[in-house]
Simulated assay, not measured.
Amino acid sequence: MKAKITVLPGDGIGPEVTAAAVEVLRAIATRYRHEFEFDEQLIGGAAIDAHGDPLPPATLAACKSADAVLLGAVGGPKWSDPNAKVRPEQGLLGLRSALGVYANLRPVRVHPKLTALSPLKNEKLHGVDLLFVRELTGGAYFGAKTRTADTATDECKYTVVEIERATRRAFEFARARRKHVTHVDKANVLETSRLWRSTVTRIAKDYPDVALEHQLVDSMAMLLLTRPSAYDVIVTENLFGDILTDEAAALAGSLGVLPSASLGDGKAGLYEPIHGSAPDIAGKGLANPLGTILSAALLLRHSLGLESEAAAIEAAVDAVIESSVLTRDLGGGANTNEVAAAVLAALAGQKERVAA
């Protein structure tokens, strides 16, 4: 297979973790005889510094012409003024809109080796395997905004089409998993949530083999900590999904091990770890590359249709975690390059076993 992958290292630790993921993708290409072309472009703060624009035209064009986009992270103290007219996160939001991605997938699986790092008791973490589907294009993040000296508003607006397409994605994924969807809203208070609930309930009728339950977002925040293994696929609106997925990341022991994928109607997608740019450790070799490497696995699976290759990366990461070659956030002493090298070695070991 030939594929063009646009790489957006971004800011902070982004260049370090994306470099690790690209090396893993190169190893996969060699092992399975694919041709991956990598095109590196600027986004976020780095793009502001170079071009005064968090999403330069060249970056946008490269992303639109690619088969998939791999992103590191954006932002940092240098560009953190919330009143600034140009901010790094505008590049990410603009890219999501331009690519037409509307469903953000965030899988959360707890590796047994890392349960001690979670604030929850180990017995609550057994069997935790969640898939969040967060709607990406609507809600308060994109609604009209006003500001006066003593008031501010953020409009939360949703259309039926926005809700339907994210919901159908959630049910399709549930069909291939444990056939259970939990929809999270605040329908006892918010009109947008009542639209979500009625739409999700209607869509569920097209999937009679998948069970549906509704949870209020405040209850769900508690349930994620008290019985996380009871859930399979969780679908929700933009703001709720942003908050709940970061909460769920605590189950896995570190933000550093969790990937994400943002998908639209086509094959192209945007793939990134869920962690931020961590400017305090940038350039020190302390960044955990596993979340970005696992995001590369999602890229192979969802944009390129390469399931065996994606599974090979995930198995290699599991092997590295099991061997305790871990960065500081996971209680280890390895640096970024050492963890990446361990993943590459685990992949090579798979190849040797296949050859044998």
Rank of each mutant, 00 (worst) to 15 (best):
D11H: 06
A20C: 15
V24C: 13
T30C: 07
R33E: 15
R33W: 08
E35G: 10
E35L: 11
E37F: 06
F38H: 04
D49I: 01
D53V: 02
P54Y: 06
V69S: 04
L70E: 08
G75H: 08
G76V: 11
K78E: 14
S80E: 13
N83V: 00
K85G: 13
V86A: 03
P88Q: 11
P88T: 10
Y102G: 07
A103N: 01
K113G: 02
L114Q: 10
T115L: 10
L117F: 12
P119G: 07
H126C: 00
D129C: 03
T137R: 14
A140I: 15
F142W: 13
A144F: 04
A149G: 10
D150E: 14
V161E: 15
F171K: 01
F173E: 14
A176E: 13
R177M: 01
R177I: 00
V181A: 02
T182K: 01
K186F: 10
T192S: 15
L195N: 02
R197L: 11
T199S: 05
V200L: 05
A204V: 05
D206E: 15
P208C: 05
V217A: 15
S229I: 00
V233Q: 02
T236E: 10
A248G: 06
L258E: 02
P259A: 04
D265F: 13
L270K: 06
P279V: 12
G285Y: 09
L290G: 02
G291R: 01
T292M: 12
I293W: 11
L306N: 03
E314K: 07
D318E: 15
L326S: 11
N335S: 09
